[in-house]
Amino acid sequence: MRLLTLVVLIWLVVGAVAAWQRGYFGDSEQNCSTLATVAVTVVAGPLNYAGVNPKIDCEVPQPSR
């Protein structure tokens, strides 16, 4: 169980480093697409260095007037 926890932790740290290297944590627009892209990049982990470049597009419905 400890080994699995360590592997998952390292996987997520590598994903966070990949997101940081792509500049996702900088001063960028804060919206659904940006947050989803950062989350998927972190979860993809080391796959980012194998050519995976996840991008998510989403639209949040606007409130009615």
Rank of each mutant, 00 (worst) to 15 (best):
56 I>H: 03
28 S>I: 08
38 V>G: 03
19 A>V: 00
35 L>Q: 11
34 T>H: 15
19 A>R: 02
36 A>R: 10
48 N>R: 07
2 R>N: 08
13 V>T: 13
42 V>F: 01
32 C>D: 05
44 A>K: 02
56 I>R: 04
18 A>L: 04
32 C>V: 11
63 P>G: 06
7 V>Y: 09
63 P>D: 13
30 Q>M: 07
62 Q>N: 08
19 A>S: 09
32 C>F: 15
36 A>P: 11
54 P>W: 01
46 P>S: 13
27 D>V: 00
41 T>A: 01
48 N>P: 07
3 L>M: 08
62 Q>T: 09
32 C>W: 14
14 V>E: 01
65 R>V: 04
21 Q>D: 11
3 L>H: 07
9 L>N: 02
12 L>W: 10
10 I>M: 11
58 C>F: 08
52 V>G: 03
34 T>W: 14
29 E>F: 05
22 R>S: 11
5 T>K: 13
3 L>Q: 08
3 L>F: 08
4 L>M: 13
25 F>M: 10
18 A>I: 01
12 L>P: 04
6 L>G: 09
60 V>Y: 08
50 A>W: 15
20 W>D: 04
27 D>E: 15
65 R>W: 12
48 N>T: 05
24 Y>W: 14
28 S>E: 08
64 S>D: 11
53 N>F: 02
36 A>S: 15
62 Q>E: 15
42 V>G: 01
29 E>T: 13
43 V>C: 01
50 A>S: 10
52 V>W: 14
35 L>C: 09
65 R>Y: 12
16 A>W: 10
23 G>F: 10
43 V>T: 00
5 T>L: 15
53 N>M: 07
11 W>D: 06
38 V>L: 12
18 A>Q: 02
12 L>A: 12
9 L>G: 06
5 T>G: 15
65 R>T: 06
53 N>H: 08
54 P>C: 01
55 K>S: 03
55 K>T: 03
24 Y>E: 04
63 P>Y: 10
16 A>Q: 08
49 Y>F: 15
37 T>G: 04
48 N>D: 07
56 I>C: 14
50 A>Y: 12
60 V>A: 08
40 V>F: 02
21 Q>S: 09
25 F>K: 10
